[in-house]
Amino acid sequence: MATIPTDRNPDSTLAFLRAGYRFIGQRCERYGTDIFQTRLLLEPTICVRGRAAAELFYDADRFVREGAMPARGKRTLTGRGGRGHPLRRTAAGPRGGPEPDAGAAGQRLRGHRRAARPLSLPAGPAPG
């Protein structure tokens, strides 16, 4: 079994915060691999990228998502009940293949918008 490259820094939290989204890609390029180990907030962390990594994370038999995200974040990022993300992915089209044409994506998005319930807010002043 191959050894996973390990970042030399005792902790990479600041580098992660500075680089943001680019952090994993930059380190993978540095180590010439799609996987490496580092420390974030002093905790050992394995970072991965690529198609195989994405397939691993979407495998429901390997990861339990229920309860993994705080309720506020879940409502914000995925919509009520966690249904928002799969709908957005469907509207955007398949990943890793040819780009969908704008007409097909637009039709899917319009279909999802029609299926969504309208937001209704109570009348009167905002609670404060």
Rank of each mutant, 00 (worst) to 15 (best):
R8A: 15
L77Y: 08
E55I: 11
L14I: 14
D61Y: 07
P100T: 05
T6C: 14
E43Q: 11
R30A: 10
A104P: 06
A71Y: 12
V64I: 07
M69Y: 10
C28D: 00
R89Y: 02
A105E: 11
G50Y: 07
L41G: 05
T45C: 06
D59P: 02
A53H: 00
R83E: 04
H85Q: 08
P100I: 02
T13P: 13
A54N: 07
E55W: 02
E43V: 13
T3S: 13
G25A: 15
P100G: 05
G50S: 06
H85N: 05
D7M: 15
S12Y: 10
L14P: 08
D59F: 02
P98H: 02
R75M: 01
L87A: 05
R72K: 10
R113Y: 04
T38I: 12
R30Q: 13
V48S: 04
F16G: 02
F23A: 00
R8K: 15
G106W: 05
A60R: 09
T6V: 15
A15H: 03
G103Y: 09
P100L: 04
T13V: 15
A105M: 11
P86Q: 01
A2L: 14
R27Y: 04
F23I: 00
N9Y: 12
G97E: 02
R88L: 08
D59C: 03
P5Q: 14
N9V: 10
Q26W: 11
G81W: 08
C47I: 01
T90H: 08
I35C: 01
H85Y: 04
C47Y: 00
L41P: 03
A91G: 15
R51S: 07
G84Q: 00
R108F: 07
R95M: 08
E43H: 06
R51D: 01
G84E: 02
D11K: 06
T33G: 15
H85L: 06
R80K: 12
